[in-house]
Design a binder for these strands. Structure first.
Lengths: 205, 205, 205, 205
DNA sequence: AATGAATGAGTATTCATTCAT
DNA sequence: AATGAATGAATACTCATTCAT
């Protein structure tokens, strides 16, 4: 008599709304995206939206939390035997893969500077912290194995990897920047970052 | 009854509002910044705001145009004798100098993805085009003098310089990233970009 | 497939919802009480609520009708031999007994001025009319027996008894007013009402 | 150049909105009255409403504060020479005068049980406390002069005066209750309250 | 019967913009 | 020029009600 409600349906509906939110936020920014448009994209009524997310804020937070989960999943799935330097390269490739969806790129650039609502700021910080600490660990491992320069602390290198990815994302939204074409150059830049400055040309033969 | 208003005063008032707009946009994003807050920051009444800018849009456009002017001024002021590769380095230093004002960094990251209003999109495109074409010219000159790799077109390298600067800007807004400390690493990255990949270590002597 | 539902269960469920409605209306007013909260208090789902009451209006009407029934029951249960003046006193005591439940007092004060929906207005009027006519009959009987002043029509005295009870109810909701402590003063006031003004002190012995 | 804005106009506009709020609250209750209707009654746009009152809450609070001011003004304006018992009678007459406006009566009954928002609860309490303490002082003075029974504390008598006025107000909103006709009976009841129970008729001469 | 997901009309409030002074 | 009062369209969010299971 009670309710054999399918939790999978609920989850699917949530994802449907999250997807619509990603689209709308990427296109108009957080404040510029209206819940009405998100509902239109998701093909639902406004009541349904708020049935699943108590506030617009909470939708953004949910999207960010999904990103955190994905980041954790990525690093968790790494083969422990794989050389750390390769893992860093894999990460960049993984990030590029995400950015192949222009909505992801738009979302990243658009959401970057949200500090107004504390909940959002906290979620953004959590996202940042997760990626940063995971990258730092891998960088540190690579340093220990001599695969990465060690004149800079692992944390700083981790931040710079994120910097390069963010810069890359910021270009995706402008026209004439093909993710696949430019990906090798991104890898090249990350490589230069991790190798450090070219040994002085004084090196004799 | 007549009003021979001092045009200098008018200009000063405009700049005062532009400055307030920069602050507000950087902090809350374009849609998130209200004209009321801009007025509060500028210390003026709402009527005065719309006396000088017909719409909120137009204020953003004015800020972007100021950026274009500044970019043009930067490149115009270069000593024609200075080696192009040095000019690129100067540009990066100049950009870092701007980013020392965290409002500028916030403004860049926040305004990046505005495509909603056509006027704004046009102004953003103009900003982008100006910097890109000026940089391209300098990069091309550097290539001709053999100071920069020539396996990539000048335009693409110009875009990547902007990419690095944008990535740098996106990090300024997050805590723990000191512009002055990190600037050398940015120059290093630009250097790596312009030099191209390290000659393969397999090169025997 | 068939469903020979126990009507007693149905009745119990209705009372459960009515009780929850009484609580919610008393606390937040009619418009302020949400069906969601009523459901929460009753421990049921929203679907169940509307299974038993087609609208929120109808719940309020049901509560009022219950009040009418109770009023009728009270007067019907009176011993015909009991002096009418005593019956009036009994009625006041009965009303005070109801008001010992602060929800009842809140409900009365909160529902008093509802004229928006015609159904509710009608139900309120019915409640009012029932009490008023029953009281009037008793007052008239008491007047005939010389137990109550007859310089005022019975109907007007009936209204004033209700006035005193309403005033009493309005005080219950404010703090520091103990129903049991104050009840004797209410009886005293009703007594003064029914006796009429103190005979002029000029009365010589 | 600045703004020689007439503060009197502002005050007038506020009163205009307060008056409209009184009407709407009295008719539909607090939650039932919409800001849209208040605006319609006041003949203003919704923006204007919120230009003068930041929230619907604040309008109700303003109305209550006006009531407090009026109460204070009433007691302040009393001739100190006037016998306290007369002042109590004057107060009742004053209250009846207010209730001649059916909106005032509706407002009192409708707003009585608002405890949801703390601001409103506080304003209601302030209203209550003001009237109660002023009445108590007068009652105490009357007791000292032997004009009022002293078997009950002044505070309790003050509360009961308010009780009678509230009950009176609750009847105004129902049809067939003429304020002017019924006022003498209210004075009679207040008199009975202050005199105390009729000396037992058993008292022989 | 009972449930809770879905709905959309309605609500308080915000905000860019206009205009009389 | 400068002001701030006035405006109403737009917005996030609520809530009574419906309906498939």
């Amino acid at each position: 008599m009670p309710r054999p409600i399918d939790p999978a349906l609920r989850r699917a509906r949530r994802l449907q709304i999250i997807d619509a939110g990603l689209t709308a936020f990427a296109e108009h920014g957080y404040a510029g995206a209206t819940t009405a448009e998100i509902c239109r994209i998701a093909g639902i009524g406004s009541g349904t939206f708020f049935h699943h997310f108590p506030t617009k804020n909470s939708l953004l937070v949910a999207i960010l939390e999904l990103g955190v989960e994905e980041t954790i999943a990525f690093f968790t799935a790494r083969d422990p035997q794989r050389p750390p330097r390769q893992v860093l390269s894999d990460y960049v490739e993984h990030a590029v893969g995400d950015l192949a969806d222009p909505r992801a790129a738009g979302f990243i650039t658009v959401v970057g500077g949200l500090t107004a609502h504390p909940e959002i700021a906290a979620a953004l910080q959590a996202d940042e912290d997760t990626t940063r600490s995971r990258l730092r660990d891998v960088v540190a491992a690579a340093q220990q194995q001599g695969q990465v320069r060690d004149d800079l602390p692992a944390d700083r290198l981790a931040v710079w990897i994120m910097l390069l990815v963010d810069g890359f994302a910021s270009r995706v939204t402008t026209g004439g920047f093909d993710v696949r074409t430019e990906a090798p150059l991104l890898q090249e830049q990350v490589g230069a970052l991790l190798d450090g400055p070219r040994s002085t040309p004084t090196t004799p033969c």
